[in-house]
Every structure is written in C-alpha cells, then in structure tokens.
Design a protein around this nucleic acid. Structure first.
Lengths: 101, 101
DNA sequence: CGTGTAAGGAATTCTGACACG
DNA sequence: CGTGTAAGGAATTCTGACACG
C-alpha cells in the first residue's frame, strides 16, 4: 500500500546527489510549495523517491526558464489528476466487490 | 533497472526506526557479514529498502534464537538463488531476441 | 525571483573500547 | 556471542540573513 516510492526516508544531501540540485535550491522549492518533504521529530527533512522524481521534473522546467509559480501549478494539476484516477480505480474495485456478492 | 528498492540512500537512524532495531544491532549484523550497506565518501552508511527487508528477516530469526552465523548462511543461499533466477530470466530474454531475428 | 554564501547551533553518525557473559 | 553504553570527533542539516538583481 504505502509503497517504497512514497516513503519519506532520504536526507537532503542524498537528494542533492540524486538530482544534481544544490541544497539551497531544494529547500527553496519547498519554501515555494512545489513539494512537501517529511520531517523527523527534530526537524530534519526527509524525502521520498517520488519527491526526487518531482525535483528532477522541476529541474528540467527551471532549465527551460519556467518560474516556480508556474511549475507549482502544473504539479498541483498533475497530483489532482492522480488523485482522481486513484479514486476511479478504487471505485471500480468496490464495484467489482459489489458484483460478486 | 537499478530499481528504487536497491538504491543505497537511507541513513542508519531511519533504518532503525523502520526495523525497530538499535543502531548497535544494525552495525553488528554488518560486522558479521549479514548485509552490506553502502557508504558515502565520508564513511556514512547508506541502506536500501532491500537492506531494510533483510534486517527485518534477521530480526525475526534472532527472536527465534537463531545465531548470526546461521542467518548469514541462509541469506547467502537466498541471494544465490536470486542470482541464478535472474540469470535464467536474462537467458530467456536473450533467447527470445534470437528467435525474432 | 532565484540562488549563493558565511554563521552558529543542533542533530546524526562514526569508531574503538569496556562491560557482561 | 550479542548487545549496551559512554567518549570524542567528524559530517550533516537547520534557520535566518545579507547579497545580487
């Protein structure tokens, strides 16, 4: 269910290596609301592989000169689409169960 | 190819939370050769989700009183089986390619 | 707006060793 | 054998701010 890809377990230094982004940039994109890493009790940021992928998309867009505000919109829309899709799948599964009764 | 699950990106503190094992135990199992985390250039240990799963298996066995040496054997055998299986799959895929030519 | 950097402090991890057994 | 712990040091991360623009 909560797959590996979504688990917030990677610290920012490793994320930096994985994405090629500086710590400053990674923190800034969070500040601007483009992604939401987890935090340990002591306040240390933790990222998932999904976050790393998001950051790679952000990096591409930034290279194209796209501003963070626009990127944020695009990301929000994408996550909404994902949400709707997942709900539809859930609905289908539930429908299947009802059929079988 | 190099899937998320195998990537060495998790630090020992998080692994401890994920597995319920103390840092001491996690390091000791490594010392005994039951698993091989990666290291950053500075020497900080980094684990994969696969390592985390291995540690959970180790924890179970230890609770049953199995010694680390025995657990190590079992793990080695398992990884050999995995290796053989993967090679067979690779062989099959190659065979498919040859058929198509 | 987006990013770099120096600053001071806090949290994390590392190793080798002693302890118990 | 397997694990805890205290010890000292090194590496990592955090925040807020100044800089440039």
């Amino acid at each position: 269910m909560t797959s590996f890809k979504e688990k917030k377990v990677i610290s920012i230094g490793i994320v930096s290596e994985l994405t090629g982004l500086t710590l400053r940039k990674i923190r800034y994109y969070e500040e601007r609301g483009l992604l939401a890493p987890g935090r340990t009790e002591k306040g240390v940021r933790k990222y998932s592989f999904a976050d790393v992928e998001t950051l790679m998309k952000i990096a591409e867009k930034r290279e194209e000169g796209v501003q963070t505000a626009e990127i944020k919109e695009k990301l929000t829309k994408e996550s909404n689409r994902r949400k709707i899709r997942d709900e539809m799948i859930k609905g289908q599964i539930n429908a299947q169960f009802r059929m079988r009764k």
